[in-house]
Design a protein around this nucleic acid. Structure first.
Length: 318
DNA sequence: AATGTGGCCTGTTTGC
DNA sequence: TGCAAACAGGCCACAT
């Protein structure tokens, strides 16, 4: 499933094909994919047609395209106030396609772009499970005054529907102090805090388990007992594992298509904890020990840990 | 107010 | 063999 590194790969790929192009037509094939656009299909389409895509911006797993409306034949590029928001959910894909390519089985929305030589004319949203979706949202000032997210031409504004989430660990404006303050003030388990988008964004179940494993921390570690150096190790671990995944996904930048093929494929081989129940912990093995990664339920999700190098709390003491 | 839970979705895998 | 249940999981509405 697309996680933050995959969404960033999509952002970079998409920017290359859609920046500066005008939307000429929109075809909503399944209204469920725009259910978060509360004003309905007609309003959704009306907001997009004749608008020009100024950039592709990402924070966490939210991706949006600031739009400039073409008024009286001239594009006001100085003040984009709305954006086309996309969230891929579990199975969403954004594909650049030529018109003659047959519709994908789970094609939900087709966005036609002004023709440019050598560039595909359609941006297609394909989504099997419909956890993802598209909708139009306003741009609002950021709370910290920095750019809303990662883009080619950073705006001091953020898509409203993404304004409640914290900066992700790959954001140049990510603040460790802010993260640590938020974590410390929580009264919950560490993994729950990691998955809370208002504490730190972009981390899902897979990267949460990987970051915790790398930092040798247990998912149930009470957040208020976390030492500064533990938190620093955890953030660094998250950055390392996501940068590695990003590098592995970066090979598809030159593709005509914006690559989001579901299973984390190539990078899955690099995972040390997630999905490895019953297998030896590689770090323990390297140290001459034999411990087996175990799978447990936490927050109705699978959590994978090494019982030796990520020990569970005993008597509430760490 | 802050924290925790359930449900949305459907193709694939597992189990009886 | 065949059907049903489990599973995947980000996010938000709702409950406590």
């Amino acid at each position: 499933m697309p996680e933050l590194p995959e969404v960033e790969v999509v952002r970079r790929g998409l920017a290359r094909w859609v920046r500066g192009r005008t939307i000429t037509a929109v075809d909503v094939l399944d209204a469920r994919s725009i259910r978060r656009h509360g004003l309905g299909t007609e309003d959704f389409i009306g907001n997009l047609e004749h608008a020009t895509v100024m950039d592709v911006v990402r924070r966490g797993k939210f991706l949006w395209m600031p739009l400039a409306m073409d008024t009286l034949g001239s594009v006001d590029s100085t003040l984009p106030k709305v954006a086309l928001m996309a969230h891929l959910g579990m199975s969403g894909q954004l594909l650049m396609q030529d018109p003659h390519v047959p519709d994908e089985k789970h094609l939900k929305v087709r966005i036609c772009l002004s023709p440019v030589d050598g560039m595909p004319e359609q941006l297609r949203f394909v989504d099997q499970r419909i956890f993802g979706g598209l909708f139009v949202t306003s741009l609002v000032p950021t709370s910290d005054g920095g750019p809303g997210g990662l883009g080619e031409t950073p705006l001091p504004e953020i898509a409203e529907e993404a304004s409640h989430i914290a900066r992700d660990p790959l954001d140049p404006c990510f603040s460790f102090d802010t993260f640590y303050r938020k974590v410390k003030s929580r009264k919950t388990g560490l993994k729950r805090a990691l998955l809370d988008q208002s504490v730190i964004s972009g981390i899902g179940n897979i990267y949460a388990d990987e970051a915790l494993w790398r930092a040798r921390l247990h998912y149930a570690r009470p957040t208020d007992t976390l030492r500064r150096r533990d938190a620093a190790r955890l953030v660094q671990a998250a950055q390392e594992v996501m940068n590695a995944a990003l590098a592995a996904g970066g090979t598809s930048f030159d593709s005509l298509y914006v690559n989001v093929n579901g299973d984390s494929g190539y990078f899955a081989r690099s995972l040390n904890a997630y999905g490895r129940a019953g297998e030896l912990c590689s770090r323990c093995e390297a140290a001459g020990l034999q411990s087996i990664i175990k799978r447990e339920q936490f927050m109705n999700r699978s959590s994978y840990t090494c019982p030796v190098c990520q020990p569970r709390p005993r008597n509430g003491r760490w």
